[in-house]
């Protein structure tokens, strides 16, 4: 499957594992709840393990684990849920998370410029999406007023 990461279109093999499923071989993301309860086993998984955050999750609960996590996915249930933008900002600027911050779920290519300025560096679109077009939208603006992001 293809995604946008660090301004490139790349092949990607991360898979999200629902709470009632067993981990599969390879790189997996799990819910925050699962991470918190099964952290020890997850760290022994043969492959990398990332965490998927919902816009209502409290980042404080994983703040101490961030060094162990290479990927945080932030899930959009609906594209207009602006909390995801602040979550990404906090991850990057408050918790100094240096891994990958990936948008997943129902967000729009038209949001990609704002998303990247808020802290996201990877984008996995839910439905059919022309990735070349989405990639070009990272350059919708060449100037910005805010220092942040």
């Amino acid at each position: 499957m293809q995604i946008i990461k660090d301004r490139n279109i790349i092949e990607d093999n991360w898979q999200f594992i629902a709470d009632d499923q067993l981990l599969l071989p390879g790189d997996c993301t799990v819910t925050l709840g699962r991470w918190l309860t099964e952290k020890e086993q997850l760290l022994r998984h043969d492959g990398k393990v990332g965490v998927r955050i919902e816009s209502t999750d409290d980042l404080e609960t994983i703040s101490c684990d961030l060094a162990l996590i290479p990927l945080v996915e932030i899930n959009f249930v609906i594209f207009s849920d602006g909390r995801a933008f602040s979550k990404a900002w906090l991850l990057k600027n408050r918790y100094h998370f240096s891994g990958e911050i990936r948008a997943v779920g129902n967000f729009l290519a038209d949001q990609i410029f704002y998303l990247s300025r808020s802290g996201f560096n990877a984008f996995n679109f839910e439905g059919k999406q022309n990735l070349t077009l989405a990639l070009s939208m990272l350059n919708d603006f060449s100037v910005s007023y805010q220092k942040t992001g």
Binding site: S80, D81, G82, Y114, L115, S118, Y145, G149
Partner: peptide, 14 residues
């Protein structure tokens, strides 16, 4: 005005 214009984080407020 400048700070609010295209502020990336606060474009989808409640």
């Amino acid at each position: 005005r400048q700070w609010t214009t295209l502020h990336p984080e606060f474009a989808y407020l409640p």
